[in-house]
Simulated scan of single mutants.
Amino acid sequence: MPSLGSIRRSFTPWEDAGAKPYISFKNVTKRFGDFTAVDNLSLDVYEREFFSLLGPSGCGKTTLLRMLAGFEEPTEGELYLDGQPLKGVPPHKRPVNMMFQSYALFPHMNVADNIAFGLRQDGMEKSAREERVAQMLKLVKLEEFARRKPHQLSGGQRQRVALARSVAKRPKLLILDEPLGALDKKLREETQFELMDLQQQLGLTFMIVTHDQEEAMTMSDRIAVMDKGIIAQTGTPAEIYEAPNSRYVADFIGSVNILEGKVVSSGDGHVEIDGPDGKFVGAVRSHAPADGATAWFAIRPEKMRVSREKPDGVDNAIKGEVWDIGYLGDMTIVNIRLESGKVVQAAMINQSRIVDDPIGYDEHIWLSFSADAGVVLDR
Results as ranks from 00 to 15, higher is better:
residue 161 V to M: 12
residue 164 A to K: 04
residue 165 R to F: 05
residue 165 R to Y: 11
residue 166 S to P: 07
residue 167 V to Q: 10
residue 167 V to T: 07
residue 168 A to S: 15
residue 168 A to V: 08
residue 168 A to W: 05
residue 169 K to C: 09
residue 169 K to Y: 04
residue 171 P to A: 13
residue 172 K to A: 10
residue 172 K to H: 09
residue 173 L to F: 04
residue 173 L to H: 05
residue 174 L to V: 15
residue 174 L to E: 00
residue 174 L to Q: 03
residue 175 I to G: 00
residue 175 I to Y: 04
residue 176 L to F: 10
residue 177 D to M: 03
residue 177 D to G: 05
residue 180 L to V: 05
residue 180 L to C: 06
residue 180 L to Y: 08
residue 181 G to F: 02
residue 181 G to P: 04
residue 181 G to E: 03
residue 181 G to M: 04
residue 182 A to S: 15
residue 182 A to N: 14
residue 183 L to C: 03
residue 184 D to M: 03
residue 184 D to R: 00
residue 184 D to L: 03
residue 184 D to N: 04
residue 185 K to Y: 06
residue 185 K to P: 00
residue 185 K to C: 09
residue 185 K to W: 00
residue 186 K to A: 14
residue 186 K to N: 13
residue 186 K to G: 02
residue 187 L to T: 13
residue 187 L to K: 00
residue 188 R to P: 00
residue 188 R to I: 01
residue 188 R to F: 12
residue 188 R to A: 06
residue 190 E to M: 09
residue 190 E to Q: 14
residue 191 T to A: 15
residue 191 T to G: 00
residue 192 Q to W: 06
residue 192 Q to P: 03
residue 192 Q to A: 07
residue 192 Q to S: 09
residue 194 E to S: 02
residue 194 E to L: 08
residue 195 L to H: 09
residue 195 L to M: 15
residue 198 L to E: 07
residue 199 Q to P: 08
residue 199 Q to C: 04
residue 199 Q to W: 01
residue 200 Q to T: 12
residue 200 Q to G: 02
